[in-house]
């Protein structure tokens, strides 16, 4: 059994230590908001936070998360009210929506570390996340918008 804390809940999972965290989250714990896109850390659809850092869960062994804190999209906020989530809906960012969990999880780390990111900062932080629908221009605007909301005191 491997003990991990997911979205604040302490759990024990019966998994091979080599099993990628992605499949533990999706197939063993039933949290399907984290997506499978490439399996080789190329697309970012599986991005989660491991002790607050964005990691690609498809290549992160569950053993690495043992005793650690994992946050998935389901845990980004309680009421879908993270500044990024509000900005995403406000600017109609999602299209097919499949990559957006990963985009949001990457953006959340950026915004926490850098509350006032420039376009260049956004390019640097977000280029590991592919969106096949091409929502990048709106993601860029939404991150700026979320930074603004955060400055105005929105929940983050």
């Amino acid at each position: 059994m491997i003990a991990i804390t997911i979205n604040g809940k302490q759990l024990e999972v019966a998994a091979d230590p080599d099993m990628p965290l992605l499949w533990v989250i999706r197939d063993l714990l039933g949290l399907t908001g984290t997506k499978f896109g490439c399996g080789v850390a190329q697309c970012g659809a599986c991005t989660v936070h491991l002790n607050g850092e964005a990691v690609r869960s498809c290549v992160t062994k569950v053993s690495r998360a043992a005793g650690q804190q994992v946050t998935t999209i389901e845990g980004l906020s309680k009421l879908n009210d993270h500044a990024l989530q509000i900005a995403w809906a406000e600017l109609d960012v999602p299209q097919c929506g499949y990559c957006q969990s990963g985009q949001l999880m990457s953006a959340a780390v950026l915004l926490r570390e850098n509350p006032n990111p420039t376009d260049q900062d956004i390019d640097d932080a977000m280029s590991g996340n592919i969106c096949r629908c091409g929502t990048y221009p709106r993601i860029r605007l939404a991150i700026h918008k979320a930074a603004e909301l955060q400055r105005e005191g929105a929940k983050s």
């Binding site: 908001g33 998935t72 980004l76 989530q85 995403w88 809906a89 406000e90 999602p94 929506g97 949001l104």
Partner: peptide, 12 residues
């Protein structure tokens, strides 16, 4: 606004 935007931001 898109009617599917919210469910596409919280994993649901």
């Amino acid at each position: 606004k898109r009617m599917d935007a919210r469910v596409k931001t919280d994993g649901t």
